[in-house]
């Protein structure tokens, strides 16, 4: 029954496509993981926006965190004969079969945000952020900001063992290595949450002479920084001036904190993965340009001088 339906859909669609084969606009299927986090929701919003701006017909499938739903969605995209498929894979393994099917149907697949373990000739390219580079950008900012002054940094790590925590830590350490005046004095996990960020910051403040000995806070995500900022304020210090605050992600709330002078800098993990993906697809479709196998998105640094209020207003409506 289901097969019959997809078949009927495919026939109808191919008839439709035959009519407008000359048109440059593409039909792209997008298999999204779900909406487990604000960032993920923003990625969906921006992908839809990008598609609309470029006149791309986007077919969206929400997998609700299940790989089997993603595989079903990709098969139905193949049956519908889409021009390309965007895939944000929920897990890294188990994609060979379905990617093979897409390849046989000559439909290019672009991976968004996460990687897969399959051989790289099964997909056109992967668009993503370099987590280690994000940590480096944050570290470089701090090194430049403090200059020659001695600076004791406390670090709020992400969930222990998670790849963002490991790589954002490594990148930051790389950036401050060789600058002996900047050193990490305490590092502890805040589980990427506001509550834990606040609790751990409270203990940092107690352990480092009431916070007098802390010059800067580096948090692996903005949510922990927002929690820590409250802890700093409750300890009677001024976040943003007594203790510098730099974090990663660029979620809307950190821009409010920057507007109030309570946070200093954030590194953006852009939810606009679809923009570069569509660029690569358009180039590939028009003259067959093979994109590199990994397209790194920009890890943009935002500071208080970047008009945080305006960015907040802009980001607020992206579904974070």
């Amino acid at each position: 029954m289901k097969n019959l339906k997809t078949l009927a859909g495919a026939v109808a669609l191919s008839a439709l496509m035959a009519g407008s084969a000359a048109a440059a606009d593409m039909t792209v299927g997008f298999s999204q993981i779900g909406s487990e986090s604000g960032w993920r929701a923003a990625e969906t919003t921006l992908t839809k926006q990008q598609a609309e701006q470029r006149g791309i017909d986007l077919k969206f499938a929400d997998a609700q965190q299940k790989q089997e739903n993603q595989i079903k969605a990709i098969r139905s995209f193949i049956a519908q004969g889409v021009d390309a498929i965007l895939l944000a894979p929920v897990v890294a393994t188990g994609w060979d079969q379905v990617l093979e099917e897409a390849k046989d149907a000559e439909i290019p697949v672009v991976l968004l945000d996460r990687q897969v373990d399959s051989s790289d000739d099964l997909y056109l390219t992967a668009v993503g952020s370099d987590l280690e580079h994000e940590g480096e950008v944050a570290g470089d900012w701090l090194v430049k900001e403090v200059g020659d002054k001695d600076c004791n940094v406390v670090e709020l790590q992400g969930t222990t063992g998670s790849s963002p925590a490991i790589k954002r830590k490594a990148g930051f350490e790389k950036a401050i290595s060789g600058h002996d005046n900047v050193k990490i004095v305490r590092s502890q996990t805040g589980d990427f949450t506001r509550t834990k960020g606040k609790e751990v910051m409270e203990s940092f403040l107690k352990a480092e002479n009431g916070g007098q000995d802390i010059c800067a806070l580096y948090a692996h995500n903005d949510d922990m920084a927002v929690g820590a900022i409250q802890a700093i304020k409750e300890a009677g210090l001024k976040p943003g001036s007594d203790i510098l605050v730099v974090s990663i992600d660029a979620v809307p709330d950190i821009f409010l904190a920057m507007e109030n002078g309570e946070a200093n800098a954030t590194v953006e993990l852009t939810p606009n993965m679809a923009g570069p993906a569509f660029d690569a697809l358009e180039a590939y479709k028009s003259d067959g340009t093979e994109p590199p196998k990994f397209i790194q998105t920009e890890s943009k640094l935002y500071t208080q001088s970047d008009n945080p209020k305006a960015i907040y207003e802009e980001k607020k409506n992206q579904g974070y």
């Binding site: 487990e36 949450t193 509550t195 606040k198």
Partner: peptide
């Protein structure tokens, strides 16, 4: 108490 502490309701992590 948990929500008031961080001035926000974090449905994913509150009380986890």
């Amino acid at each position: 108490v948990a929500a008031g502490d961080i001035r926000g309701a974090d449905a994913n992590n509150a009380g986890l």
